[in-house]
C-alpha cells in the first residue's frame, strides 16, 4: 500500500537523462517552467508537449510509471478544470442551467490549465525519476553556493535534505513493518469511520515516532564519531562535472524554448 507512493521517487537507469549533470537538469526544468507560463497559443503548447514527449522517451522510463506518478494530482487537475469552467465568463454560452453557465471561453481556459499542470508535473517528475536524491541535493547545494557569502547555511540545509530524503524509504519500510506487526495482533486499519480510523493509527504512530527519534539519535552520534562539523573545508567524493551531453542538452533546449516563445509572439 505505502509502496505505491511514486511521487518524487528515483528509478535507477543509464539513459542520457540519467547521465546528465543534475545542476543542468534543475536549471533546465526551471527554465522549462518559466517557458511554460510564458507560452501562448496552441502551437506553443504543442511544441512544449513534443519536447516533453521527447524527454520522456529519452529517459527510458515506462509510460505506466510516469502515469502512476501523475495519479495523485488527478484531484487537483479536475478541481482546477471544473472551477475554470464554471467561473470563467464569456460570450459564447455552451450550456446554462440554474446558476451555472458554462461558456466556450471557460472550457478553453480549463483545457489550458489542465495542459499546463500536466506538463508542469510531468517535467518535474521526470527530474526526480532520473536523478537520485543525493545527486539532487548535491546540485542544489552547488547552485545555492553563492548564498554562503551572505551567511546562509547552505551546506547544513543540503545535509538536512539529504538525511530527510535518505530516511523516507527507511521510514516507509518501518511503517509497513509496524503496521503488519499490529495487524498480526488484530489491529484494523481499514474499516470504521474516520474517528475510528484515526484512533487505529495510534498503535502505528507511537512506535514509529519512537524509532524515528532513536534513529536520529544514533545517526547524530555516528556523525559526531566521524568528526562531522558542518561544511567547513569539506571536500566531495563525487564532484559534479558538466560533460558534452549537458551542453548538447542546453543547446537543444535553448533552440526549442526560443521557438516556443517566438511562436507565442508571432501567433
Amino acid at each position: 500500500m505505502l509502496k505505491d507512493i511514486t511521487l518524487g521517487q528515483f528509478f535507477p537507469g543509464n539513459s542520457p537523462l540519467h547521465r546528465m549533470d543534475p545542476r543542468f537538469k534543475i536549471v533546465l526544468v526551471m527554465v522549462y517552467i518559466v517557458v511554460l507560463f510564458v507560452a501562448k497559443g496552441i502551437y506553443a503548447y504543442a511544441l512544449i508537449a513534443a519536447f516533453n514527449a521527447l524527454a520522456m522517451a529519452l529517459s527510458r522510463i515506462r509510460v505506466r510509471l510516469l502515469l502512476r506518478g501523475l495519479r495523485p494530482m488527478l484531484f487537483i487537475v479536475l478541481f482546477t478544470a471544473i472551477l475554470n469552467m464554471i467561473y470563467v465568463s464569456g460570450e459564447h454560452v455552451l450550456v446554462s442551467f440554474w446558476v451555472i453557465t458554462i461558456t466556450w471561453e471557460g472550457v478553453y481556459a480549463a483545457a489550458y490549465m489542465v495542459a499546463r499542470i500536466v506538463l508542469l508535473i510531468s517535467a518535474t517528475l521526470l527530474l526526480t525519476y532520473t536523478t537520485s536524491p543525493i545527486m539532487l541535493t548535491d546540485a542544489i547545494e552547488r547552485l545555492l553556493g553563492p548564498l554562503k557569502k551572505i551567511r546562509v547555511p547552505v551546506h547544513e540545509f543540503a545535509m538536512m535534505m539529504t538525511i530527510a530524503l535518505r530516511f523516507i524509504p527507511t521510514l516507509i519500510e518501518e511503517t509497513d513493518k509496524i503496521m503488519s506487526a499490529q495487524k498480526a495482533r488484530g489491529a484494523d486499519f481499514e474499516s470504521g469511520n474516520i474517528f475510528r480510523r484515526a484512533k487505529a493509527l495510534v498503535p502505528l504512530l507511537i512506535p514509529l515516532f519512537v524509532s524515528a527519534f532513536r534513529r536520529a539519535d544514533e545517526l547524530a552520534l555516528a556523525m559526531e564519531c566521524r568528526c562531522y562539523h558542518g561544511g567547513e573545508g569539506r571536500t566531495r567524493m563525487r564532484v559534479l562535472h558538466a560533460a558534452r551531453i549537458d551542453f548538447l542538452a542546453l543547446a537543444v533546449c535553448a533552440v526549442w524554448f526560443g521557438g516556443v516563445i517566438t511562436l507565442g509572439i508571432l501567433l
Binding site: 509496524i178 503488519s180 506487526a181 498480526a184 507511537i206 512506535p207 519512537v210 524509532s211
Partner: peptide, 9 residues
C-alpha cells in the same frame, strides 16, 4: 515479528 519490541506502544 523480528525485533518485536519496536511495536510496543
Amino acid at each position: 515479528f523480528q525485533y518485536p519490541e519496536y511495536q510496543l506502544f
